[in-house]
Design a protein around this nucleic acid. Structure first.
Lengths: 229, 229
DNA sequence: ATAATAGTGTCTCTTAGACAATATTTC
DNA sequence: GAAATATTGTCTAAGAGACACTATTAT
């Protein structure tokens, strides 16, 4: 076989599902495409992998270049490679899931006309470029699942947070209300989920709440089960 | 930018972690490489993706071509793309995890000198080609985790099986003994995990055991927790 | 005082885990 | 009968979920 036949010319890209919670609503970071194909449409931030860089590295670079957002967690999601997913050429996209603690205003990057947080609920009907609808959906589903058995929710919180703020993350991503008292008991009894610090805050309005930092644990065992419906 | 710079020449491959349980031992399907690099060493079955086929399609094709094994489950695992993971050129490998119900004798394929089941316990010290050690390890870890919250274990069983055989799958993959009585109760009380059929078998030696088929459920809720140590 | 939010305590029900006891086969 | 495996039942302890009650702030 010739090398061309054995190793056809593939493009390899990384695309990012970057999530955060703003005012009780789960939001995704999207760019408005400046070039064809799909010019003017919304898409996930991303770009082609350089020939001499690793995949994780490419994801981190694109995140910085295109969005400037600093994330607390970045993990590989899945790889999408339908032959016709990009009209230009055969492109395989390795996707990543990222969680950001706060909504710092994203700045436009080199080949992104605009980058902005959009509530994912508004995107239900909206059409994203390429197969990014599917990727975003898969990313959200992954995040929902991982909240159950990991301490990942803290990645959505600022360095110091209250139990109520942590609960708001769960409620926003799961779309279900949780009992504040049972939630509190569960979190505090899970070893290494959060570490208390000797400070309180009163951003809520009522009695001041104790502040916590993310603990060292990454797994949650037993898990925090998601409500049925 | 020229197209060459924007879309560097990547090779895209699929590699497969194919697992089964033979006589209480978890086994992986490995080939002995016939060509350089790593000629003579053990590797995961796999190959390059054709320019006009999807990733899942390529995985299914390589599985059939290289091993002839029929699997009950095939899912994407992760993608590995370190710049120097293949000495020949830049290759990104999209890996898949497959579960086979029984050990039909695998037959050698076109570019595989040999394909055979190997107990994964023996591979702890063994060195696989490329970064396949890491991939195999990740695949096993994924399988271990998924047994907890899915009905995937039935993919390792023949069409009709006993609860004891299903339990043996769990014990082999987790490497932990499970209480037969509690296991039985748990499986039978999980809706849609297994469906009883009106037949029994006595392959075990003692009292005949009822036979079951895999149920329609894919999720296990609440999960079947893995023992601590 | 009232409203608002934080945090503790209590009760019940489900489930996991340990293990006794019984059932049905082969040798 | 003895050995082996299957299956049912029982007990206990841990955890989830519901929710009453107390604590501490602002207005």
């Amino acid at each position: 076989m010739t090398r061309t036949r054995t190793h056809p010319p593939f493009g390899v890209a990384v695309d990012l599902v970057v999530l955060t919670v703003i005012e009780g609503a789960l939001q995704a970071l999207l760019i408005e495409r400046g070039e064809e194909p799909f010019a003017g449409e919304l898409a996930l931030p991303g770009g082609f992998v350089h020939i001499d860089e690793g995949l994780d590295e490419a994801a981190a670079r694109e995140l910085a270049e295109e969005t400037g957002v600093r994330v607390a967690h970045l993990e590989q999601l899945a790889t999408y490679g339908d032959p016709d997913r990009d009209p230009r050429m055969r492109v395989v996209s390795v996707t990543y899931l990222a969680m950001a603690p706060e909504p710092p205003s994203p700045r436009a990057g080199t080949d992104a006309a605009e980058a902005a947080w959009r509530p994912v609920r508004d995107l239900a009907t909206e059409q994203l470029a390429f197969d990014h609808d599917k990727i975003l959906e898969d990313g959200i589903e992954r995040a929902r699942g991982k909240l159950e058995y990991t301490t990942l929710a803290t990645a959505f919180c600022p360095p110091e947070f209250t139990i109520a703020e942590l609960r708001e993350v769960y409620e926003s991503i799961w779309g279900e209300p949780l009992d504040p008292r049972n939630f509190s008991r569960k979190v505090l009894s899970s070893d290494g989920f959060v570490d208390p610090i000797s400070a309180t805050t009163t951003r809520g309005g009522g009695r001041p709440a104790r502040l916590y930092r993310a603990g060292e644990a990454t797994e949650l065992s037993p898990p925090l089960r998601r409500p049925e419906s």
